[in-house]
Design a protein around this nucleic acid. Sequence first.
DNA 1: CAGAGTATGTGACTGCTTTCACAAGGTGAC
DNA 2: GTCACCTTGTGAAAGCAGTCACATACTCTG
Lengths: 205, 205
Amino acid sequence: MPMGKVPDIVVGRLPLYLRTLNYLIEEGHEVVSSQELGRRLGISPAQIRKDLSHFGEFGKQGAGYDVNYLRKQLTHILHVERVWPVALVGCGALGHALANYNGFLTKGFEITLIFDNDPAKIGQMVAGKVIHDVADMPRLLCEHGIRIAIVAVPSSAAQATVDILVKCRVRAILNYAPINISVPPGVQVQNIDPAVHLQRMTYYL
Amino acid sequence: MPMGKVPDIVVGRLPLYLRTLNYLIEEGHEVVSSQELGRRLGISPAQIRKDLSHFGEFGKQGAGYDVNYLRKQLTHILHVERVWPVALVGCGALGHALANYNGFLTKGFEITLIFDNDPAKIGQMVAGKVIHDVADMPRLLCEHGIRIAIVAVPSSAAQATVDILVKCRVRAILNYAPINISVPPGVQVQNIDPAVHLQRMTYYL
DNA sequence: CAGAGTATGTGACTGCTTTCACAAGGTGAC
DNA sequence: GTCACCTTGTGAAAGCAGTCACATACTCTG
Ligand SMILES: NC(=O)c1ccc[n+]([C@@H]2O[C@H](COP(=O)([O-])OP(=O)(O)OC[C@H]3O[C@@H](n4cnc5c(N)ncnc54)[C@H](O)[C@@H]3O)[C@@H](O)[C@H]2O)c1
Ligand SMILES: NC(=O)c1ccc[n+]([C@@H]2O[C@H](COP(=O)([O-])OP(=O)(O)OC[C@H]3O[C@@H](n4cnc5c(N)ncnc54)[C@H](O)[C@@H]3O)[C@@H](O)[C@H]2O)c1
């Protein structure tokens, strides 16, 4: 019942469970079994039960899981009952799409600060926010207590950008630049590179 | 030396190795050790050697790996010595960014067909390509022999879109919609959802 | 309220993944 | 050529993750 060290791989599946629960609520379900959840996710029911059992006993035997209750629990476990302010660095094509993306807010995130180093862009408005000069990043990140950032700058600028973010106490970085960045221990990094995902699939073609 | 069944998890790392080799070539390196490669990727040298040993003996004892040779081998293993034509479905904010992204070509991919269902967008040019009506998708996918598609439509339209793609013999799908899609066996799917990646990190904050 | 049906939580087990450690082979200085 | 030093490829071992199967407990029908 009390949660010791939970494997990363288990933590990595929780957001998928949460996402599916939200769809179940939209569809009006009040209760869901590990079997149904597993069917939707392509995961075995046993694995879902074992994953959840790391954090507590959320289900009811003979019935399944109360969808709203489980959603609340996962939201709490993942620390997304609050909305995290997020900084976006690099407001090019991808940055624009991310800034205008309305899928973040309901998942616990809001892009509140946008940065670029292009003088032609600085000062412009995007998604209701002004684009700030990267030179002001240290001050603004501090003032807003930002802990999470999204990096959408060219690869060549990614490591330098990350170094600044880390120095400003950012502790979680979502990196879209197709390059491996290095960070000190205690800083989380997740990488998104569509070419890598595509190449994973062409192996099997 | 001959490659039997290679674990998925190993295949998943090969694109990262390949990406790093490309940077090494840019930097003028001719040879790299598993240690250096591991350092850059945050992976143990032993794991890199074992992964590569599934496919052959590419290194030289006492020296390391010839960067160009290893790159060529991985390019071959992943089937990206050719350039794959890719269809993009959904040309909104994200679709625009992807269509204009110039990082695909050097990795073995080119977006050659773009589809949308918005009459206002159909016929417009994006990144030098015309946006086609989704109604023409079956015919055009067939004519172009498309095997790979990127899905960037709203969640509500994702499963229906995927069903059409699968029926048109697409065998690899990169899905940006934040929903679990189901496909018959033999069809590869990779999902990209930034909110999921962010929630994986907030657990640790 | 009894009994058939259903679903969880979990220890034991199986299988997969990573690390270890070393023989074999290559390098470079002198 | 020799010797000290590297680095690979790989079995063996260790460590992790996923599945199985069942005791337990809830539901629902009649
Ligand atoms: N466009 C895509 O669909 C896509 C897909 C996958 C990955 N990416 C990656 O995402 C990143 C951004 O892609 P994009 O297409 O938006 O490129 P882009 O060139 O349109 O945008 C990059 C932006 O970053 C800004 N920038 C450059 N250096 C900076 C710095 N030091 N500090 C702050 N801002 C800086 C530029 O002014 C520009 O506005 C790149 O690394 C790219 O490889 C893009
Ligand atoms: N914008 C982002 O940064 C971002 C980030 C992550 C995920 N996503 C996801 O990517 C998808 C697209 O996001 P977006 O921001 O580009 O949205 P968008 O609304 O700007 O674009 C969606 C496009 O899909 C088209 N479309 C709708 N139904 C279609 C159908 N049946 N067939 C073909 N085209 C259809 C629309 O006409 C529109 O052009 C969404 O699922 C979104 O959740 C977007």
